[in-house]
Amino acid sequence: MIALGCDHGGFELKQEIIKHLKDKGVPYKDYGTYTEDSCDYPVYAKKVAEAVLSKECEFGILICGTGIGISIAANRMKGIRAALCHDCFSAEATRLHNDANILAMGGRVIGPGHALKIVDTFLNTPFSKDERHVRRINLIED
C-alpha cells in the first residue's frame, strides 16, 4: 500500500498519480489534502510518515509546490528517509543506496508524464542491502 499526501500546490499532480496507481492496480491510501484550498503541508507530511512508520503503508509519496517543504517536514520523524526527486536517476539511486521510504516531488516543478516515470522507478527499485549503504543508513538513524 502506498500512502499519498499533498498540500494545495501538489493536489493536481497527486490526482495524476492516483489515476496512474489505479491503472496499474497498485493499492494506495490518500491522506489528503482533498482540494486546492490553501493548507499546511506539515499536516500531510506527518500523516504519510506515520502511515509508513506504522507499516500500514510500505512507501509514501508527498507533493507540495516544490517538494522541499513537505520533504523537510517528513524527515523530522525518526525512521523516515524522504527523498526529493525530480529525475529517474535520483529516484533509483535513493532506493538503491538510501532505502528511502518516501518520495517527494514538486507539483509546480515537474510535469505529470515525467513524475509518473519517477514514481514507477521509485516503487520498483529495491534497496541494494550493500553493507556500506546499510552502515550509512544506521549512521543516519543513530
Rank of each mutant, 00 (worst) to 15 (best):
M1P: 12
M1F: 01
A3S: 10
D7F: 00
G9I: 01
G10N: 05
E12F: 05
L13P: 00
E16H: 02
I17F: 03
I17T: 05
I17P: 05
L21V: 01
P27Y: 10
P27C: 10
Y28E: 00
K29D: 11
Y31A: 06
T33I: 08
T33V: 14
Y34H: 08
E36G: 08
S38P: 13
Y41D: 01
P42S: 12
Y44Q: 00
K46C: 08
V52R: 08
L53P: 02
S54T: 12
C57V: 10
C64I: 00
G65Q: 02
T66Q: 08
G69C: 02
I72E: 04
A73N: 00
A74D: 04
R76V: 08
R76F: 05
G79I: 09
G79Q: 08
I80A: 02
A83G: 14
H86F: 10
D87R: 13
C88S: 13
S90A: 04
E92C: 04
A93M: 14
L96F: 11
A104Y: 02
G106S: 02
V109C: 06
I110K: 09
P112E: 14
G113R: 15
H114C: 07
A115H: 11
A115F: 14
K117P: 10
I118M: 06
D120Q: 12
D120P: 15
T121D: 03
T121R: 04
T125H: 01
F127G: 03
S128H: 13
R132N: 15
R132M: 09
V134M: 02
N138S: 12
L139T: 14
D142T: 09
